[in-house]
Design a protein around this nucleic acid. Structure first.
Lengths: 197, 197, 197, 197
DNA sequence: TGATAAGCGAGACGGTACGTCCGGTCTTGAG
DNA sequence: CTCAAGACCGGACGTACCGTCTCGCTTATCA
C-alpha cells in the first residue's frame, strides 16, 4: 500500500473519506476515459476534493491506479481442492474474470507501461502478485506430483507464465463471447495434457 | 502502414529522409524515456525536423510508434520445416526475441494502452499480427495433424494465445538470463505434450 | 516599382491581367482585414490566381502593398499658384486626404513597421516621396522668398516634416469630423505665421 | 498597465522576476529583430521562462510591447519654466529622444499597426499619452497667453499634433546627425513665430 | 518548326509561431 | 499537519499559415 494513513504524530489527521472517494473516482474514471486520459485533476474533482489532497496520499498516477484497481484482497489465488483439473480451470476462469473487469482492462496496459519505466517496479510487482501465486501453485503441484497426477519436473513459475499470459492475451484479442465458451475448455485440455504424468 | 508516401498527384513530394529519421528517433527515444514520456516534439527535434512534418505522416503517437517498432517485415511468422518441435521452438524464441528488444519492451504496454482505448484498433491489430500468424499456424497444424503428430482438435488461435501470451508474460516478469536458459525447453515440453496425439 | 514586367528574353510572358487583379485585391483586403492579417494566400485567392504568381511579381508583402497603395502617380505634390496660403492649404488637405484613404490608413503603419526593419528602405522611401516633394517645395519657397512672402531661411525639408507629420498624427488621433472643420484653418494659421517674413 | 500583479487573494503569487525578465527580453529582441518578427516564444525563451507565463501577464503582443517600451513613468510631459521657448525646445528634444530610442523606433510603427486594427485602442492610446500631454500643454499655453506671449487662440491639441508629428516624421526620415544639429533650432523658430502674439 | 524557357494553376511540403491544456507545485488562510 | 481554494510554472499539444517546391501544361521566343 502507498497511502500510509499512519499520521502517528501531531497535526490534523487525514480525512479517511477522501481516501475512499478518490479510489472510487479512479475506478469510475478508468472505465470512462481510460488510463492515459485519467488526470489527477479529474479524479480530485470527481472525488469532491483537490489535487494536493490526492498527491499527499499517492505520489504518482501509477501507484494510485494500482491501489485502486488491485485492492489488497486476501482471497486465495490458487484454489485447493483435490481435483487438479478443477483447480486449473478455476485459475483460468479467475484470470479471465480479472482481466475482463472494465477498470482492469483499462488500467492494465497503462500500468505496465508506467511501471516498466520505473526501475524497482519489477520486484514490487512480483512480490505483490506473481510470487504469492507461484508459492501457492508450487505447493499445489507438489501435492499433485505426489499423487502422480503431474510430471514431477513441471515448474510452477512456468505455469504461472502460461496461465497468466494466455488469459491476458485472450482477453485482449478476443470477444467476451468467445472466452466464456470453448476457450477455457480447450486451454484446460492443452494444459492438462501438457503437465500430466 | 500509415505513412502512405504515395503522392502520385500534384504537390511537392515528401522528403523520404524525414521518414527514416523520424522512425530512427522514435526507436532511440523509446529506449531512453519510454512510451508515455515520448513526445512528438522530442521526436521531431531528435529527427532534425518539426512537429507538422511528423503529424503529416502519422496522425497519432500510437500509429507512429507502432510503425516504428514493428516495421512491415515480410518474414514468415511461422516456420515451415518438417520438425514440429523445432517449429514450435522457433516460435517461442522468436517471441522472446521480439518482446526483448528494448524498444518493444518500452513500447508494447503503452501501445496496448493507447490502442485499447481506440475503438477500431482491435481489428487493425488482429489484421496486422494475430491473424497472419494464426493463418500460417493453422496450415502448419493441419499438416501435423495429417502426419498424426498433433491431435486434430488443437486450435491454432488458441496456440497463438498461449505462445504469445506466455512469452510476453515471461519477458515482463523474468530476467534475460532465465529466458535464454531452460525456459524455452520447459515451455516447449509443456506445449508438445499438450498438443501431441 | 518592383513588378518589373520586362521579360525581354524568352519564355511565356507574364499575364498583365494578374498584375491588375492582384493590386485590386490588395486594396480591397487592406480595407477589410488590415495590413497584418493580409495574407498573400488571400490576395491570390481574391485575385483569382495562386501564390507563386504573386511571389513572382513582388517578393515581399511590404513591396506589394507599397505599390498597390501608392501607385506611381505623376500628379504634382506641391501646387503652384501665386497664393502661398492657398498652396500650403492644399498641401495640408492633400495630406489629410491621402492618410484618410481607408487603404492608406490600414497600410501605412504596417508598412512603416516592415520597412523600418528593412535596411535600405530608408533611401528608397525618401527617393519615392519625401525627396520629390522637398524639391518642389524648395522651388516654391524660393519663389515666395523672392516675393518677400516668407523668411529666406525657412527650410523646405523641415516644412515637409511638419506638414507630413502633423497631418499623419492628426489622422491617427482625431475623428474625421474634426479634420474637416477648423483643424486645417488653425494649422494653416500657425504655419503661415511661422514662415512669413 | 496590463500585468496587474495584484494577487491579493489566494493562490501562488506571481514570480516578479519573470515580469522583469520578460520586459527586458522584449526590449532586447525589439532592437534585434523588430516588432513583426518578435514572437512570444522567443521572448519567453530569452527571458528564461515559457509562453504561458507570458500570456498570463499580457494577453497580446501589442500590450506586452506597449508596456515594455513605454513604462508608466510619472515624469511630466510638458516642462514648466517661465521661458516658453525653452519649454517648447524641451518638448521637441524630448520627442526626438523618445522616438530615437532603438526599441521605440522598432516598436512604434508596429504598435500603431496593431492598435489601428483594434477597435477601442484609440481611446486607450489617447488616455495614456495624448490627453495628459494635451492637458498639461493647455495649462502652459494659458499661462503664456496670460503673459501675452502667445496668441490666445492657439490650440494645445493642435500643438501636440504638430510637435509629435514633426518629431516622429523627422526621426523616421532623417539621420541622427541632422536631428541633433539645426533641426531643433529651425523647428523651434517656426513654432515660436507661429504661436507668438 | 522544333527546342528552349518561362509562366501558369494546383497543391503538398518543410517549418515558424501560435494560443491552450494540463500536470505537478506552491501559497494562502482556516481548522 | 491537514484541509479547501486557487494561481503558478513549464512541457507538450495539435493547428494555421508562410514561403517554397514539384508537377504537368500552356505560351511565347529563338535556332
Amino acid at each position: 500500500m502507498v497511502s500510509t494513513t499512519l499520521t502517528v504524530g501531531a497535526g490534523r489527521p487525514r480525512d479517511p473519506r477522501i481516501d475512499e472517494a478518490v479510489v472510487a473516482a479512479v475506478v469510475e474514471l478508468l472505465c470512462e476515459v481510460g488510463y492515459q486520459r485519467l488526470s489527477i485533476a479529474a479524479v480530485a474533482a470527481r472525488a469532491g476534493t483537490t489535487k494536493p489532497a490526492v498527491y499527499r496520499r499517492w505520489p504518482t498516477k501509477a501507484q494510485l491506479v494500482h491501489e485502486a484497481v488491485f485492492p489488497a484482497e486476501g482471497r486465495p489465488l490458487v484454489p485447493e481442492t483435490d481435483d487438479l483439473a478443477a483447480d486449473l480451470r478455476s485459475m483460468l476462469t479467475d484470470g479471465i474474470a480479472l482481466f475482463s473487469r472494465p477498470e482492469v482492462r483499462a488500467a492494465a496496459p497503462g500500468l505496465l507501461a508506467d511501471l516498466a519505466q520505473d526501475p524497482g517496479a519489477h520486484p514490487r510487482l512480483l512480490a505483490r502478485f506473481t510470487s504469492p501465486m507461484f508459492d501457492q501453485l508450487q505447493g499445489r503441484l507438489e501435492r499433485a506430483a505426489a499423487a502422480h497426477q503431474v510430471r514431477p519436473d513441471v515448474d510452477a513459475r512456468l505455469l504461472v507464465d502460461v496461465i497468466g499470459g494466455s488469459t491476458f492475451m485472450a482477453v485482449l484479442t478476443r470477444d467476451r463471447a468467445e472466452l466464456e465458451g470453448p476457450w477455457v475448455d480447450q486451454t484446460l485440455a492443452l494444459l492438462l495434457a501438457g503437465v500430466q504424468a
